[in-house]
Design a binder for these strands. Structure first.
Lengths: 352, 352
DNA sequence: ACTTTGTTCCAAAACGTTTTGAGTTCTGTA
DNA sequence: TACAGAACTCAAAACGTTTTGGAACAAAGT
């Protein structure tokens, strides 16, 4: 490993001059700079991050921590983000330290990693309302960026989708088709985004003058089984009046609902409209559904580059207020949504 | 962040003494050591990895690199390993730097990360025969450990399953049940383990005096679709004589084969025996199959702790020869294997 | 000739740790 | 009392980088 000293000796220059030459400082002769650059290239010089960090306090490394869940289902999403973020960070010459959280104390792994003295900042995912990690990191002035927000009004850098808009768009679309009994299979309420969506759903329904009976709301970790089970329960009518439309928090859940509808011989969209929010994970493609799924769409992948940039910019000193991005999901109407069935003509009345 | 100097000032000691006290050197007074330890705890002192690395050349950080594939299917396995390894490394006070390989030059990301001067070693997964990463890292004396081996005889630390034994066990089990037409749905031949298995399969078959027609062998990235497609092709008979038993490289592939058998109204194990190698990923449980799958079983998770230990031990100076573990997979007989159907009584002759 | 200004470079300090070589203070023995 | 040896502690160097505070020199202005 060539060092600044090696280059200096080779050229009869001091390390100081070599350092300035390579870092583009103005007070070094253009010819000298060229000579330094050339020998640096020839010797394959790369600055030692360790030494850089020791003196500048910057290491060019950030951390990301995964919660290990007994159920690994949602972790595919995490991995998707992890690889995308790592690639995006590489473009900003930043490396990523990965750790896992096995304790039930959420800030512990962050503290442990921070105390190593090797990190410039963190990427936080899956925030919960009033996330303790956020308050902890903020308290000690550690830069971080959040995928999403832990509350509506925040003062840290983040990138996320407008969950309120997602629900308004979904409810409005279905209401415009005449639906009045709209159910919502939400994600885990523990998570901030699911909280936001639930509140937004209720507001949007109220704005349309529609009521939301308790059994029209469910929330759980998204899975096909969850969608099937809750879908079947709602559509069987044993919980109360049946919905004519179901909004799902994820396409995986929607897949379950579609299976439930199939098992009940319900036609989608004739008897039942189904839509979902689509994170556009490479595995579950909403177009491959039958019928093709109407969705609000915001690819997870799209978050990686802005998240990486926001964090690195913030570490570089850009104010948090400049680094807050809330994007609006696209509404993509496909074949799983349609006009509400005429009253008295829905399959339950006609067959039963 | 408390430093050695802080502790030294507090106690009126030099940083040298504080350092020795904390690192358990013998030439420091027991009372002094206690006092140092206490104030270190009180001040929440944690050694600065950066400074440590600069002077010792050790950082307590290792690297792992994921190949980003357009198809993310096999990456679930990688993520499973990644989290397990990270946890196992944490137990050895070692952190993990994660990077992704987007180029088609396999050593490039390793070089890039190494040149940062922050890593003590690497964990390599999915070796290919004569893996270029192995030769490159070996050439510059960088410690590493491999999950598996890139060839039969190696001189580096590794942990892997005995793929030869897996195939011998599988073939012997089926041969003992009277099967003579045994097919093999292998993994990607690009990978070393699949290479080893194919050779071992051929040897084991030859040892039993059984021939292996070309159409009894297939190899591809494991997936349900692959198992279904190749299974259907083999069992339809349009490629040649039909197998009475199929060995699958993964349970995912076996799931596809079982579906193909179902579609052809073949009874398993009455008409067809199916077995697979089971990496025991949390998602696909072989016991949940119907019929429950006979497998050679070696949980991926089991590899994490030994891999982490091998690497850290190797970095600590333990010779590679001491750090080579080849474990034998368990053979678990369940309900998907049975005696070969009597000649002339198999469903193709009776129904057709 | 003397000062000023600008350009180009350098020596040295700093970051926090480990480690070397050299004291300094105790203890026990002659 | 003197001395050897053990026990304990310290100052300083080192790792590779950035950054501070000049220094040397030339060109330009007075």
């Amino acid at each position: 490993m060539a060092t600044l000293k090696d280059i200096g000796i080779e050229l009869g220059l001091s390390v100081a001059t070599v350092s300035r030459a390579l870092n583009g400082f103005p007070e070094v002769n253009a010819r000298t700079r060229d000579r330094v650059r050339q020998t640096a290239d020839r010797l394959g010089y790369r600055p030692n991050r360790i030494a850089q960090r020791l003196v500048t306090g910057r290491s060019g490394m950030v951390g990301m921590i995964a919660r290990i869940q007994p159920d690994m289902s949602s972790d595919m999403i995490f991995f998707e983000m992890l690889t995308g973020l790592t690639a995006a960070l590489a473009a900003r010459d930043t490396d990523l330290v990965f750790a896992v959280d096995q304790s039930d104390e959420p800030v512990l792994p962050y503290q442990r990693l921070l105390e190593r003295g090797i990190l410039d900042g963190f990427i936080l995912n899956a925030p919960v309302p009033g996330d303790p990690r956020v308050t902890w990191l903020k308290a000690r002035g550690v830069p971080f960026v959040v995928h999403g927000q832990d509350q509506v009004q925040v003062d840290y850098p983040f990138y996320g989708i407008d969950n309120r808009a997602v629900m308004v768009d979904s409810v409005d679309l279905l209401a415009a088709l005449g639906h009045r009994r709209i159910a919502f299979l939400n994600g885990e309420l523990r998570l901030a985004f699911a909280n936001d969506r639930l509140a937004a759903f209720r507001n949007a329904m109220a704005a349309e003058g529609l009521s939301v009976p308790d059994h029209f709301i469910a929330s759980d970790d998204p899975s096909e089984n969850y969608g099937y089970g809750r879908g079947l329960a709602m559509l069987s009518g044993r919980l109360g009046p049946r919905p004519t439309a179901i909004v799902c928090g994820s396409t995986l859940t929607a897949a379950g609902v579609l299976r439930a509808a199939r098992d009940l011989s319900l036609n989608v969209p004739g008897d039942l409209s189904v839509m979902a929010h689509d994170d556009a994970l490479p595995k579950h493609r909403a177009t491959n559904f039958s019928p093709a799924l109407t969705v609000t769409r915001a690819p997870m992948r799209d978050a990686c580059v802005p998240l990486a940039n926001h964090l690195v910019d913030h570490i570089d000193g850009v104010a948090a207020a400049q680094l807050q991005t809330l994007i609006r999901a696209d509404v993509i109407v496909r074949n799983s949504t349609g006009p509400v069935p005429e009253e008295g003509k829905d399959p339950w009345h006609s067959t039963q």
